[in-house]
Computed example of a mutant assay.
Amino acid sequence: MKSGVLTGLCATVLGFFLMVPLARLFDAMNWAVFNTWGLAHGSFVFAWPMLAYVSFYLLRMLIPTLRGRGQSH
């Protein structure tokens, strides 16, 4: 499996699991949109891709083997 595909799959799963701390933060701060109720009623459509994109970038930056050959950063 190519490193980009593996990184994409890992980032998608990590983005899904990062919605839990995001919801807890928004619940604790009494903020709307990404709290637990908001995520359960549709705002996960916006949160999940954003968290997956950030996870993808961080995985490629922090784990050199996921960058692939010939890519230094």
Rank of each mutant, 00 (worst) to 15 (best):
H41A: 05
P64M: 06
A52Y: 07
Y53R: 06
G42K: 14
K2I: 00
S55K: 03
L18Q: 08
L62Y: 07
I63F: 13
P21S: 05
G70I: 05
A32I: 01
T7A: 14
T65D: 03
S72H: 12
M19Q: 11
L25V: 03
D27K: 09
W37Y: 15
L62S: 07
F16Y: 14
L39H: 07
V45R: 12
S72T: 07
W37S: 15
F56H: 05
S3N: 13
T7P: 01
A40V: 04
A11F: 10
A28W: 09
G70D: 08
V20F: 15
M50P: 04
M1L: 11
L25C: 00
G15D: 03
V13E: 01
K2N: 06
A47T: 05
W48A: 09
A32F: 04
L6D: 00
G4E: 12
F34S: 01
T7H: 05
A47I: 10
A23M: 14
R67S: 03
V45L: 14
L58D: 00
S3G: 13
W37H: 15
F26S: 12
R69Y: 07
V54M: 12
R24A: 12
V13I: 15
S72V: 06
V54E: 11
A32E: 11
S3A: 15
P49E: 02
F16D: 01
L39T: 07
V45K: 12
S43F: 09
L66T: 01
A23D: 09
L66N: 03
P64K: 13
F56G: 06
V20E: 09
F26L: 03
W31S: 04
L66S: 05
M1A: 04
